[in-house]
Amino acid sequence: MIKLRNYEIAVIIKSELNDEQRSSLKDVIQDWVVSSGGEVVLLDEIGKRKLAYPIEKQREGYYVFWYVKMSTAGPAEVERQLSIHEDILRYMIIRSESPVSVSSSQENDSDTDVSESDSPEDSDSSDQPDIEKIVDELMEKEEKEEMEGSK
């Protein structure tokens, strides 16, 4: 029984490559994953993007992310292969708790907004029904008390 874990592989490919070279390189990387006993759950691409700082004198990179299930021996093998290849500027393999689909990650984006303008509105919207309930209850109590007092 081999224990499978969820990993996330992030790769920056040189932006100079044309589409054919890039797709072939992606196939090669997927082959490494499959040959080391893993399976690709999801492929996510951001595409061409400016780098925050130059890597190997490159100012642009092509971002590709794989969400992968692999055995515990897999990442070391894939990492070794990634480090050798010349057209890969950067790579990173991290453990992810669960495979995240693109749609759910976008939902998480909206959830994790912590802007100061948004958060009070959220808290207000959650508080409003409670306050209304409490006010209603108080009103009812007061009415009952008044009725009892009048009697």
């Binding site: 951001i46 708790e97 990650s105 984006d109 959830d111 994790t112 907004d113 912590v114 958060s119």
Partner: peptide, 26 residues
């Protein structure tokens, strides 16, 4: 302190993704 309460706790965030730059930039 700007915010007395942790904004991630308020929004019930359980994991922070490194690709989510909108949150990280703040």
């Amino acid at each position: 302190k700007k915010n007395v309460v942790c904004q991630f706790c308020v929004n019930k965030v359980y994991n922070i993704d490194y690709k989510n730059l909108e949150v990280l930039v703040r």
